[in-house]
Amino acid sequence: MTAWLTLVGRDLRLALRQQADAAMIVVFFVLTAGIFPFGVGPEPNLLARIGPGVIWVTALLAVLLSLERVFLVDYEDGSLELLVLGPLPMELVVLAKVLAHWLTTGLPLIVAAPVIALLYNLDPAALPVLLLSMLLGTPVLSLLGAVGAGLILGARRGGVLIPLLVLPLTIPVLIFGVAAVDAALADLGARPYLLILGAMLLASLALTPWAAAAALRQAVE
């Protein structure tokens, strides 16, 4: 457990020393979400209607943008082979890195989301559901992304490859994340959608570490 926390702590410390990286993701999120009204026009009803979808899609893109770094830096500087040789099972290494990744990208996105919601004139009553759906959904994105990030190690132009691998897998998260907010807006009760998101989180928590760990072992061979 101490070793696991040591790894999480190191990754958080690295992110803290390179704050520009994390800040860039949030700025990307705010900017892309802010650019939509220029494309579709400033009609308030329309914006309120597409708001949840835009927030979810841009959050997803922002996460994708950050995934390449999850294992690549450790792979390139040789830390990864030492982690493979180290006392921690690779599945736990993956979980530690995913937790650090989510804390430095998913969580800041959730903090920034209310600003975008305000921009889109989203009904404040639906805001808690939006944040809750992101709280359940963004860790799934990090977990699925870790598998993609592990698979691209050693490939050229891996950063372009990750979205191709990960994007199709994230569609269910997108569907139920947006559906939860839409249901809240229509006073229909978002509970079932949130429960499904929770189920996705549990399933990916149980399955993805094995897949990513296998990819990492393959990468250092």
Partner: peptide, 13 residues
């Protein structure tokens, strides 16, 4: 204890 070609040093630490 393995020492490869790479130093596994984190520049910001």
């Amino acid at each position: 204890a393995f020492l490869g070609h790479l130093d596994a040093v984190k520049p910001v630490l």
